[in-house]
């Protein structure tokens, strides 16, 4: 009985609150038309350049022949619908699980070692009092971001190649050579290191910007309370940038199937395929010489689906646990 009594008014309340919600929304819109006008340019570009092309996703389910119609869009509709055939081809390959495993291993290593690193850099940089030094460090560590992978390979090849700087030093000291490029374990280390080299500075900037948002009066209050620097970092700085950390982590984990296509493509060689061949490089190689738009669409759709599930999942978890979320 009691239960009923309780639920009924709740329902009514819900209904009325929904109506109330609608009314409130309407009132809000009437009071804040500018808010919606502001969104227009962004939504316009989003619609034209991001959402309209999503029509092309169906290429993954069709045997896409680009010249079949009057133009490539028309050709999509005219290409034969073959359902999941390309996905089957992708998943049934004997190589697929190997390359999936490699992708996950490389991605996880990168997250494990490289995700916290820019945070550390940003926090430490924040402790530097000399403004000049601060700016010099910032500028220097962000330069590698502009190097393309091809070039980074060239630079590092001269350093870690069998006859590069490191091995020249090793052999002159009487040691043996280290095959960074052809030995699997060393190769993974090289991949993680070079990615860190390229991206750390860039990511540091993002956290630095977040640190500036922290109200400096909090630090003043902490000093008055006698909190040391470490305590300030732990209790003010890190919580202050936690929403950015969460945002970055959700996006990074979501992209776990993206282990760095361009990087691996220039760095790897047949000797390390067993550990270094990732999904994208594998599809790139088997599709080589054939304009296989459908196969690459199927792969990218698979990657997107996984990313979507992970991001939605991570966002929900984060909302529950930390009250921080992207949406």
């Amino acid at each position: 009985m009691q239960k009923k009594l309780i639920t009924r008014p709740q329902k009514v309340k819900y209904k009325s609150s929904f109506r109330e919600e609608c009314r409130k929304t309407w009132v809000y819109i009437r009071h804040h038309p500018a808010m919606y006008l502001m969104l227009l340019p962004g939504l316009f570009f989003l619609f034209i350049y991001k959402l309209l092309p999503l029509y092309g996703i169906q290429i993954a389910f069709r045997n896409y022949q680009i010249f079949l119609g009057d133009n490539p869009i028309d050709a999509i509709a005219k290409s034969e619908w073959i359902g999941l055939a390309y996905f089957k081809r992708l998943f049934s390959s004997s190589q697929f699980f190997k390359v999936l495993r490699n992708t996950l291993v490389i991605s996880s290593l990168k997250i494990l070692f490289l995700f916290p690193f820019p945070i550390v850099c940003a926090v430490l940089l924040n402790e530097i009092h000399s403004k000049l030094y601060h700016r010099i460090v910032q500028t220097v560590i962000y330069i590698p971001y502009f190097f393309s992978w091809v070039l980074i390979y060239g630079v590092f090849y001269a350093i870690v190649g069998s006859y590069g700087v490191i091995n020249t030093i090793l052999t002159s000291l009487g040691g043996g050579r280290i095959d960074f490029l052809t030995d699997a374990a060393h190769f993974l280390g090289l991949i993680v290191f070079t990615e860190g080299w390229k991206e750390t500075g860039y990511n540091t900037i993002i956290y630095l910007a977040a640190i500036t948002a922290i109200d400096s009066t909090l630090y003043d209050a902490a000093k008055v309370d006698g909190a040391g620097k470490w305590k300030q970092i732990w209790h003010i700085t890190l919580p202050g940038i936690s929403s950015t950390i969460v945002l970055m982590l959700i996006l990074r984990v979501g992209n776990i199937l993206n282990a760095g296509f361009e990087q691996i493509l220039v760095f790897y060689n047949p000797a390390v395929y067993n550990t270094a061949d990732i999904i994208d490089t594998y599809v790139y190689r088997i599709g080589l010489g054939q304009m296989d738009f459908s196969l690459s669409s199927a792969m990218s759709l698979f990657n997107s689906l996984v990313a979507f599930l992970l991001i939605v999942g991570a966002n929900t978890v984060s909302k529950k646990l930390t009250k921080r979320s992207i949406w």
Partner: peptide, 12 residues
């Protein structure tokens, strides 16, 4: 997260 592909984007 979702991307329609190079060709549809080119056509836009």
């Amino acid at each position: 997260i979702f991307f329609g592909g190079t060709i549809p984007a080119y056509m836009v």
